[in-house]
Design a binder for these strands. Sequence first.
DNA 1: CGTCATTACGGAATGCGTAATGATA
DNA 2: TATCATTACGCATTCCGTAATGACG
Lengths: 296, 296
Amino acid sequence: MFTLDQLRCFVAVAEELHFGRAADRLRMTQPPLSRQIQRLEEILGVVLLERDNRRVALTEAGRAFLRESHGILAGVSRAPETAREVAAGRRGILRIGFTAMSAYSVLSGILSALDEKLPSVRVELEELVTGPQKDGIVDGSLDLGIARPPFDPDTFGSHRLFTEDLVLAVPSDHPLASATRPPASDQLAQEHLIMHSATKAWYFHDLAARVLPFDHARAVHTVSQVATIMALVAAGRGIGFVPESARALGVDGVALVPLGKPVRGVVELYAIWHRESTNPALHRALEILRSPEGFL
Amino acid sequence: MFTLDQLRCFVAVAEELHFGRAADRLRMTQPPLSRQIQRLEEILGVVLLERDNRRVALTEAGRAFLRESHGILAGVSRAPETAREVAAGRRGILRIGFTAMSAYSVLSGILSALDEKLPSVRVELEELVTGPQKDGIVDGSLDLGIARPPFDPDTFGSHRLFTEDLVLAVPSDHPLASATRPPASDQLAQEHLIMHSATKAWYFHDLAARVLPFDHARAVHTVSQVATIMALVAAGRGIGFVPESARALGVDGVALVPLGKPVRGVVELYAIWHRESTNPALHRALEILRSPEGFL
DNA sequence: CGTCATTACGGAATGCGTAATGATA
DNA sequence: TATCATTACGCATTCCGTAATGACG
């Protein structure tokens, strides 16, 4: 089979149509150039250049081979740069898992920052709750998760992206909506409570339970999505705890009431990744997420 | 710069993820394979394979470089075959010039035959009268012409493709249209004659003049295209000489009247080419045009 | 101690450059 | 006779294969 050097020799001669000038361009002398062309033709079994002692011209086959050669050499010069860019994390694929609610807080800022700082990194997104995100990171199908704590620090690296308050979602016409002070426990005790699922949304479930010890019997619905709580509250089925970013959902007929100091900043969102990931694009992305100016 | 051998080595290892099996597949021993990979990584300045004594895995950069390598090697294996096919005339470009009238006789048959016998030869068509076809063939912008004689046999190779009769185009309601015998010279002498241009369509001009010595004063129009003659005859402006294939134009109100023995087969159409053309596709095409079964 | 990647070393082949040849205008 | 591609030859480099080494389970 022919070599890349033979290709480069042929391209030079084909473009110069002169062995002397081609050799000059290749920083070599004519004789080895001549032999490389001969050898290439011999290997191919095709005459590429019609030449006598006065004139050099391409045959039709030579023209076709020249086109192919250009393509090959273009690939050859592109390949190392591509590999280096991937190795440096400036190019590649970053598969990100995110919780539905993060789309209303940090996600768009993260995506904009990645787009700006790592334009050649392709980002693939998948909406998943925290559990499946961890699974995906462990089995390698995800590079980065945007998820709720806690995480096993032995397998996951993590970085806190965002904290927000837990607030109370009540119907707009409810007395609590126009109260000037945070509601007291005994005020809440009288309300129907729309709870998060203890299995599918245990993060919010546990958070709410920690903030307000409550009687499970009063839970009128058990849902897994924040947006569903908002809809049920709007429908007058009860009240519920939601993160403040639920405000971005813009559900009519729902007011979000602050709960006071104990729940200030208790809702956390983390970036998580596999500690042993070798994806360079991930590490570049983490630098950006951790940088002082952040991603907003 | 790296070599194709290094690429092949890398691809084998990347696909097998095992130096021993890869070396086996490449019909070589492990040590040189190991060194080739090391050398490739050194040249690129990038780690392509994560390996310890038990496990071989691709890095992200390695995955990217593997994709590029596949592309390069595909080009490398395609290029020689392409060159050989072009050299054999089974692939390439054939630029054909043709006269407008040939589109009503032989052209479509020729194109079908080329399409069938030389499917990988791309045919480019240009409608030109004989003069410019010759120019194009001489300066190399055309490979094949479909033109009217004569040709200088020193520069042009030629092959007669088609002969047809010269016929008389008359209005359908003209007495000559319903005559049972070819018109005599004195009958024609009384008619207005629509003549071909002596410069742009000298072939038909001379042909008509040879068949029927006539008085130039009686020429009422001078046109360069057969189709124009047909239109003028239909409009009742006179009569004219046209090749029989003008019937395919299907102009209403025009009857084509035979002229008798002296003009049987006098209209000729030739394939012409440069005697020194080196385009292999041309020679394959000529084999087809000259073959007994022809191109119809 | 067996497996598998890597290093060490000797021999063969490939490819360069200089010098000579040949062919053409 | 000048130009330009090609052949001849000597030297350096590269690369293979065999043998030895080293690390890990």
